[in-house]
Nucleic acid binder design. Structure first.
Lengths: 213, 213
DNA sequence: TGTACATCAGTGAACGCGCGTTCACTGATGTAC
DNA sequence: TGTACATCAGTGAACGCGCGTTCACTGATGTAC
C-alpha cells in the first residue's frame, strides 16, 4: 500500500498521477473496513481525494472497478502463496502445505476481497486482466499439486480436491469468525486435516513448472 | 412453493393470510432469478402482491427478512440432505456419500440462497430461528461423519474436512458455471474425489444420532 | 527558447432512480357483553 | 343474536438518502513548429 502514502499530502488539484491504481487501493481499503456493501464509486473517489465523477475517466462503471480490484486481489493472492512456498523445504509435500498456508493466510487477512474475487455477481470474469491474474494464481496451486495423485481422474482431481478444501475452509472459518456461537470450526486447524489427506506420489513423471495434459 | 400458488387469485385487499411466509417465498424466488443484488423489501412486497410498506409489519427491516430467508434456506437444505440419505444403502460410507450429494444438489439448485446462508454480511447469525435451523443442518452432516475418523483431532476434524470440501466444491462449481472459460472444475465430479478420501472406520464406538465430546 | 494549440484529467452542479422508512389512515377481524 | 369497541394488517403518500451517471467546464500537460 506504499503507493497510497502520499495521497493526502499531494496538493495538485488536477492530474493525480496514478488515479487508476489509487482507486483500486482505496477500494481494497474500503472493502477491508466495511465489506462489499460499503464499496461505492463515490466512496473510492473520496478516499483517493478526488471528485466523485473522476472514476468515470478510468473505469467502466462499478463493474469495471470491481473487476480491477478483483484482478489486483488475485495478484496479491499469488504473491502470498509464492512467498510461503519459497520459505518451505524443497519437498513436494512441504511445498504443497506451504502453498495451502499462503492460500489461507490471504483469505483470512483479506476476507471481503477474497469473497469479491471468488463469488461476486458484480465482477466481469471475462475481463482479460482478471482472467490472466486468476489463471496465474491457479497455476501456483496446480504446480503444488502436480507431484501427487488423488484417485484416477487425472491431475485435475488433486487440484480440485485441494482447492475445494481450501476454498471451503476459508469461507467457513470466515463465517465462524463473524459468529459469536461456539463453532466446531474453531477447534480444528488446517494442519489437523492436510497431513492426513490421501495424496500418493504420482507414478508418471511430470514437470513441476509446466502444466501438461 | 405451493404456498404461493394462490397469491394472485386472492382478491382480499387486507389480511393476506400468511404474509410472513409469502414474503419469504417471494424473496427466495427473487434470489433465484436475480441474485442477492436484486433482493429488496419493496420487490418482495410487490411479488407477494402487497404494498411496499407491508413488510415492515412482519420483519425488522431488510436484515430481518434476509435472516428469515436464510433460516428457511437451512430447513430446505436439511430436508434435501435427509431425503438423499434415506434413499441410500444403510452402510456408513454410502450414507455419507448420499448426504454429500444432497448437500451439493441443494447448493447447485439454490446458488444465491446458499450464498446468502453461508456468507452474507447482511444476515443476523445470532437470530435464534436461524441458529436453530443451521444447527439442524450441521447435525445431519455430523451424523454422517460420525462413523469415520480423519487424523487424530477427534470427530470435528472429519466434519470440518468434509464440510470444507463440500462448501468449497459448491462455491467453485457455482463460479465455474458463471464463467465461459474452460475451467478445470468442469471435468471433475465430486465422485472423483469422495471415494478416495482418507476416512477410516472409527475405533471407539459412538452413537450415530448423538453428538458426543 | 517561446508560442499556439490539442489533448488529457479532474471538477462540480445537476439529474433521475430505487431504496428503506415513517405515518396517519382504513378496512377487516375478533371479542366482550 | 346483536352491538360496541379494540386490535390487527395492509394502504398509499411522502420523506430523505446515497447512489451512478451525465455534461459543460477548466486547469495542467505535452507537442509541433
Amino acid at each position: 500500500m506504499s503507493r497510497t502514502t502520499n495521497r493526502k499530502t499531494q496538493k495538485t488539484p488536477h492530474h493525480h498521477g496514478d488515479l487508476y491504481e489509487a482507486l483500486i487501493d482505496a477500494g481494497i481499503e474500503i472493502l477491508q473496513e466495511t465489506g462489499v456493501a460499503g464499496l461505492t464509486l463515490r466512496g473510492c473517489a473520496a478516499r483517493a481525494g478526488v471528485s466523485h465523477s473522476a472514476p468515470a475517466h478510468h473505469f467502466e462503471g462499478m463493474e469495471g472497478l470491481l473487476t480491477a480490484i478483483a484482478a489486483r486481489g488475485f495478484r496479491l493472492f499469488t504473491e502470498t502463496m509464492i512467498k510461503e512456498r519459497e520459505n518451505s523445504a524443497d519437498k513436494p509435500r512441504e511445498r504443497l502445505v506451504a502453498i495451502c498456508h499462503g492460500y489461507l493466510q490471504f483469505s483470512q487477512q483479506n476476507g471481503s476481497l477474497y469473497n469479491l474475487m471468488f463469488s461476486s455477481e458484480r465482477v466481469n470474469f471475462s475481463n482479460a486482466n482478471l482472467t490472466c491474474a486468476s489463471a496465474l494464481a491457479y497455476q501456483v496451486l496446480a504446480d503444488g499439486c502436480a507431484p501427487f495423485e488423488h484417485g484416477s481422474a487425472g491431475p485435475a482431481a488433486t487440484e480440485i480436491m485441494i482447492w475445494s478444501l481450501l476454498h471451503g475452509y476459508a469461507g467457513l472459518s470466515r463465517k465462524a469468525q463473524h459468529t459469536d456461537q461456539q463453532h466446531p470450526m474453531s477447534n480444528i486447524r488446517i494442519d489437523d486435516i492436510l497431513p492426513h489427506l490421501e495424496l500418493k506420489a504420482r507414478t508418471t513423471k511430470r514437470g513441476s513448472k509446466s502444466k501438461q495434459q
